[in-house]
């Protein structure tokens, strides 16, 4: 009954069935980036470049680390979901900046970029070399 009332109130065509899918991926991307990105940027890109001996500053260590299946899954999740997170936020950010037209095209560009980036992330992670001999 309640569902019927909701549909009568909002109209069945108003229920966007794709939005929850993107919103779920957006939340997952926001969560994984929130949990892992700051420490990785701090170590890999700031302290590592300042001389702290982190694994990513050394080719051999980076290669050994990236050979671990868990690390590969983490790298794929972090990069691909961060792109989806960006797509969903940037789509609305553009509206916030006053661009209210071309919504379908903006959404296509944002989600299309995220999908292409995620496929590329899968390709790169799957083709990472194994442990150096």
């Amino acid at each position: 009954m309640q569902i019927q009332r909701d549909m009568a109130t909002h109209g069945e065509k108003d229920v966007d069935r794709i939005e929850p899918f993107w919103w779920g991926l957006f939340a997952a991307g926001g969560g994984i980036a929130a949990m892992f990105a700051p420490m990785q940027i701090l170590l890999q890109d700031l302290l590592g470049n300042a001389g702290v001996p982190v694994a990513t500053s050394s080719y051999r260590r980076a290669r050994r680390l990236a050979a671990n299946p868990l690390v590969r899954m983490y790298l794929f999740a972090l990069t691909s979901l961060s792109l989806v997170h960006w797509a969903h936020r940037f789509r609305y950010y553009v509206m916030d900046l006053g661009v209210t037209g071309a919504r379908r095209q903006i959404a296509l560009v944002c989600y299309g970029t995220a999908i292409a980036g995620s496929l590329d992330a899968a390709r790169i992670v799957l083709r990472l070399p194994g442990r150096a001999r």
């Binding site: 972090l78 990069t79 961060s82 960006w86 940037f90 980036g117 083709r127 990472l128």
Partner: peptide, 20 residues
């Protein structure tokens, strides 16, 4: 922030790709 995180992710993918 999502823009910076996305660009950083793409940069990380480039770095990973260079391992090959």
């Amino acid at each position: 922030a999502s823009v910076f995180l996305a660009v950083w992710s793409l940069r990380l993918l480039r770095q990973l790709n260079l391992l090959r």
